[in-house]
Amino acid sequence: MLDPQAQALMTLLSEKGIPPVYTQTPAEARSSYRARRTFTQPDAPEVGRVQDLSFKHSGVDIAVRVYHPAGATQAMPALVYLHGGGWTIGDLDTHDVLCRSLCQQAHGVVVAVDYRMGPEHKFPAAYDDAVAAWQWVASQAAALGIDPARIAIGGDSAGGNLAAAACLGLRDLGLKPVLQLLIYPSTLMAPETASYQTNGQGYMLTRESMAWYSGNYLRGPQDAQDWRASPQLATSHAHLPPAFVLTAGFDPLRDEGLMYADALTQAGVSSQYICFERQIHGFITMGRVLQEANTAVALCAHALRTAWA
C-alpha cells in the first residue's frame, strides 16, 4: 500500500497541474525543481560551518559545498555527496537540507559536488567529476579537516548511480571509499525490471521522464552498455566498498537497487539493503510532508557513523 502521505502529495501536485519533466526544457525543469523544494523539504538544520569552494579538473572548475558539523575537530570523517536529478536537474541548493541533515546527524563533514550535467555536458562528464571529486577531497583532507582514511561516497538516484560507478573506477585506481551510500540508485540505463514495468507510471518518476533524463545524459544507446553509466554491468563487483542501499517500494528503480545490493553481496562485498515499501522515488528529501523520509535520513546517518567508527 502506498503511504497515504505520499498519495496526498501526488494528488496535490496533480491538482496544481505541475507539468511532467519531459515536457519541459532542461532550464525550465531545473527552475521548477529548485522552486518546489521549499514545499516538501524540512527546515534547514544548523551545522557548524559551510564553505563554498571549487576545484579544477580537466580544465573545468567544479563547485563544492563543504558542511562541517558543530564541534568539528581536525581529522573528521567525510562523505562526498552527489545529488540526484537525472544527470540533468538538481544542484547544491536542492540537496542543501539533506546534506546538512547528514552532516549534523552523522557528525561528519559532507562535501556536496556540483558535477557537470546533460545535455550541455554528456556522459562521461558527470562520472569523471564524481571520481575526481573523491580524489580531490582525499588530497585536500588536511586543509578540509578530514581524516583521509574515512571518506565515504554517496548519492540519491542519478547521484547514487554516479557514486556506485565512481567506486568501480576508484577501485581500478587502487582507491577505496569506506562506504558507498546508495539511495534509490539507477544502476541500469536500459532497465526491463519488474519494478520498471509496474511503477513506471503514476508514481512521480515515470518511464517517459527516465527516457528524457537518460537522453539528456547519454551520447547514444551504446553508452547504456558502459559500466560507468550502468554499474550493474561491470565485469566484477569484487573489492568494492561496503554498501548501504536504500530503495522505495513504488519506485521504478527499486529492483535496480536490489539487484546491485545482491551483486555486491555475491562478489563478497558487505552490503545492507533496506526498502521503504510504501514510498515513492525521491522521498528522502521530502521530510516536511513525508514522515518516513526523516526515518530514512536517520538510517543513512547511522550507516555513515558505523562505517566511520
Rank of each mutant, 00 (worst) to 15 (best):
V21M: 15
Y22C: 12
Y22L: 07
T23V: 09
Q24R: 15
T25L: 11
P26S: 04
A27V: 12
A27K: 14
A27S: 13
A29Q: 13
S31Q: 15
S31D: 13
S31P: 01
R36E: 13
R37V: 10
T38N: 11
T38R: 11
T38W: 05
Q41K: 09
P42R: 14
D43V: 14
P45N: 02
P45T: 05
R49C: 05
V50T: 07
D52N: 08
S58Y: 06
S58W: 04
I62Y: 01
I62N: 00
A63V: 06
V64E: 04
V66P: 01
Y67P: 00
Y67R: 02
H68K: 07
P69E: 06
P69C: 10
P69D: 08
A70Q: 06
Q74T: 14
Q74I: 11
A75E: 15
A78I: 12
A78P: 12
L79E: 12
L79D: 10
L79V: 12
V80R: 00
V80C: 03
Y81F: 10
L82I: 07
H83V: 06
G84M: 07
G84P: 07
G84Q: 05
G86F: 15
G86Y: 11
W87V: 10
T88W: 00
T88H: 01
I89W: 07
I89S: 01
D91N: 09
D93L: 01
D93T: 08
T94N: 02
D96P: 01
C99G: 03
S101M: 14
Q105I: 09
Q105W: 11
V110A: 10
V110N: 05
V111C: 13
A112S: 15
V113D: 00
D114P: 02
D114F: 02
Y115Q: 05
M117E: 01
P119M: 08
P119Q: 06
H121E: 03
